[in-house]
Computed example of a mutant assay.
Amino acid sequence: MSTLKLAGLQDDTPVKMTIEVPADVHRDLVLYAEVLSADGERTYAAAQLIAPMLSRFMAADRSFITAKARQVVGRSSSGALAHPTSARGAG
């Protein structure tokens, strides 16, 4: 089993996005997918890694966590966010 920080990816309903990344980032994503796939449990494509990597990055970013907490505190009495900054659901 690999010791990579990105493991145990969950299936989720995706939202289609088109992005451009520098060639060196793409090469690293392809290599990361190959290493992660080497465990043999599942084969990953480079594009499948982008969302989990961003999610883990945001979860570890203390500034984002603090802003997210402020957002939760700012909910109106109806439960809607006072100033929604993300279309992503809680998770």
Rank of each mutant, 00 (worst) to 15 (best):
M1D: 10
S2L: 06
T3I: 05
L4A: 15
A7N: 15
G8Q: 06
L9M: 10
D11N: 07
D12N: 08
T13E: 12
T13A: 11
M17C: 14
T18P: 00
I19M: 06
I19D: 01
I19N: 02
E20I: 02
V21W: 03
D24F: 05
D24C: 03
D24L: 04
V25G: 01
V25R: 01
H26P: 00
R27W: 01
D28H: 06
V30W: 00
V30D: 02
L31M: 06
L31Y: 09
Y32H: 09
E34I: 00
V35Q: 15
V35M: 13
V35I: 15
L36K: 12
L36Y: 10
S37H: 06
S37K: 07
D39R: 05
D39V: 05
G40A: 02
R42G: 00
T43R: 14
Y44T: 04
Y44L: 08
A47W: 03
A47F: 02
I50C: 03
P52M: 07
M53I: 14
M53D: 02
L54M: 13
L54S: 05
L54R: 03
R56D: 14
R56P: 00
F57T: 06
M58E: 01
M58C: 10
A59I: 05
A59W: 07
A59F: 06
D61N: 14
S63E: 12
S63G: 11
I65H: 00
I65W: 00
T66H: 10
K68W: 10
K68I: 01
A69T: 10
A69H: 11
R70M: 12
R70V: 02
Q71K: 07
V72P: 00
V72A: 11
V73A: 11
G74D: 15
G74C: 08
G74Y: 05
G74T: 08
R75H: 04
S76N: 14
S76V: 08
A80N: 08
L81S: 12
H83Y: 12
H83S: 14
P84Y: 05
P84M: 09
T85V: 15
T85I: 14
A87C: 08
A87H: 13
R88Q: 13
R88Y: 09
G89Y: 15
G89Q: 15
G89D: 15
G89H: 15
A90S: 13
